[in-house]
């Protein structure tokens, strides 16, 4: 059961990869898509997000919103 979820605001992402390195459960990767600026935005590619917000804490462009799922 997923404990959290992220929403990537793709127009702001610059694919620096800091969130990919910061994610403790390693559910993030740089996607194959391209945004308006020509960067490849990050995406959650598998289940297991715990909603810790480490990705958002390290994001220089405030491009990640984090949700915690409560039972």
């Amino acid at each position: 059961m997923a404990k959290g979820r992220i929403e990537v605001l793709e127009q702001y992402c610059k694919s620096c990869g800091l969130c990919v390195a910061a994610c403790p459960v390693k559910v993030l990767r740089i996607s194959e898509k391209t945004n308006a600026k020509g960067y490849r935005p990050v995406e959650q590619f598998k289940e297991g997000c715990i909603g810790c917000a480490m990705c958002a804490t390290t994001c220089p462009d405030a491009a990640i919103e984090v949700f915690k799922i409560q039972e």
Binding site: R5, S15, G17, A53, D61, V66, K68, Q70
Partner: peptide, 23 residues
């Protein structure tokens, strides 16, 4: 239910992308 634990700060200019290099 879902609770938002992180969102863009309110005092950050809306709909603006910074000119800084990635990272």
């Amino acid at each position: 239910s879902e609770v938002k634990v992180y969102e863009r700060p309110k005092s950050w200019m809306p709909n603006v992308s910074s000119h800084y290099c990635p990272g």
